[in-house]
Nucleic acid binder design. Structure first.
Lengths: 130, 130
DNA sequence: ATATATGCAAAGCTTTTGCCCTTTC
DNA sequence: GAAAGGGCAAAAGCTTTGCATATAT
């Protein structure tokens, strides 16, 4: 646990604005003028891996596109990133009205399932003690 | 409706893999060897605006981070991109089990509300006929 | 001491944009 | 023939990485 990592975590916890890496970098730099953006990125990775922070998901780097305009949901493989359609009815139709977000006009929600696809499950099967 | 746009849409509809722009570009290039990646991006934008395709959301370009590890949900302003916490209990606890995603081991879901935040609502207020 | 982390800068990747030419209506 | 769109290449923006140095345990 280095000074930099501690300050990054402190500053992240000190705000409720869900900052981007760059915003956090500027805050941290007020206290550690020599810190670099790369360090912030590296430490955010570590913190997320250690469950001390959360990355607000963006579902992987690249955008994907879908020509099927019927209402349906997606499931994304957390291992390989592939995206498949989820069969069946919309699961959460009654969900949105319950939101308590003061000041917001709530227009909808985005829902994406996560899982491990068939081929990634096969690839990660452990040899079993017999 | 140009040849390029039609082919892009045809190829997008021909697959169920939810391709990235680059994957689609390579498919389309088999039929239109001179097409450029920029054209694919521009047309995907148009198709999405025209509701002929969907962008599988990534919630805006940059990642955001959150130091609050308690289970809670977020709402994102679709105008300015800011992210706030949603107060109240988890809305969709009973949702995940209903998913029908053959082959997948479903590990969870990601849910993010969308809306227009207070200051963006103020900024877009229209002068009202009296 | 030795592994780990930092700072800095460069590279990587996806996406957007400018410019000029071509196609569409 | 005016308006929209395309091709190409450069730019932009976020994130990752290589490397030499410094810090932590």
């Amino acid at each position: 646990m280095t000074v930099q990592r501690r300050v990054i975590l402190e500053e992240l916890r000190a705000v409720t604005t869900h900052p981007t890496a760059d915003e956090l970098f500027h805050r941290v730099r007020d206290r550690l003028p020599n810190i670099s953006l790369g360090t912030v990125y590296r430490n955010l990775d570590v913190l997320v891996r250690n469950r001390q922070a959360r990355r607000i998901e963006n579902g992987g780097g690249q955008c994907r596109f879908d020509g099927d305009m019927d209402r349906h949901y997606h499931i994304r493989c957390v291992v390989c990133g592939r995206v498949d359609d989820v069969a069946g009815p919309a699961p959460g139709g009654a969900m949105a009205p319950h939101v308590d977000a003061p000041g917001y006009e709530v227009t909808g929600f985005r829902l994406e399932y996560e899982g491990i696809c068939a081929s990634c499950r096969k690839a990660t099967e452990r040899p079993r003690a017999h």
